[in-house]
Amino acid sequence: MRILKTFFILIFFISLGQVKAQDSSLLKMLDDSIAAVKKSVPVTGTFKGTKIIDLQSVEAPAKNVLNFMIQHRFGTINQGAYNLFGLDNATMRFGFDYGITNTLSVGVGRSTFEKMFDGYLKYKLIKQTEDNALPVTVDIFGGLYYNSLKYDSKPYLTSKYRTTYTAELIIARKFSRNLSLQLTPVWIHNNLVATTADKNNLFALGMAGRLKITRRLSLTAEYNYLPSGQVNSFKVYNSFSAGVDIETGGHVFQLHVTNSQGMVDPVFIAQTTGSWGAGNIYFGFNVSRAFNVAKKTKQL
């Protein structure tokens, strides 16, 4: 009788164990099938902003999202206390980016420098996937820049001479949740250059990275290498910038220091006259805000 009772208790516990096992085996069954169909999900959030600092990133607004960005670059820090370390001399650019589709976006902007208008298209060729079937995200970028300064004494400066083009291939990889790197070969075509010693077609390589330090804060840096011998009539430096990105909901705040005051590609890549060594460093920021402009879908 006692043995029987012990046996009963034993069986009872075994049965309990089996109920538990059943639960996890059900889940395991689902996990096996989830793994089997897990699609190659595209990687998101390679960078926080559509610009890393000055350089275009692989990011673009999603379909029907309008992104408004204000960029400021103050004067050089080495101007001293009289000019409040450059804060008295600000130049700015503001621009809009709009997602026509999830892969194609269009942007327009206006800069203080040369009263320049810019317009561009950015198209996503491939998207990096979680399973690394595609290891990188690649965008193609085409921009047009128009100098609208008045040159009263030079009426022959027609729009043809005021225009510059750029074409870029933007290649980026999110290596981990914290580290993203980007390479951007750039071609710039100036319809007009300062002297015959300067080349109309310029080639450069942009390099940039992001290191995320908390969920909403990251460090960024970019270096735009312009091989020498292309711009000769004035001393041009390679543009180097470093900063932090702070993300709060629909806003991205980017604070940085840079030796470039220009904020559009032909300017900061090929017309950077400031040098880090001489202390020609500008403090600046980009602030962007995303707006959803899609018609509200009817709530059920």
């Binding site: 109920v19 059943q22 059900l26 689902l30 996990d31 989830i34 897990k38």
Partner: peptide, 9 residues
């Protein structure tokens, strides 16, 4: 067995 399981990505 009156047991169930869910899993989602």
């Amino acid at each position: 067995k009156k047991s169930l399981a869910f899993s989602m990505l």
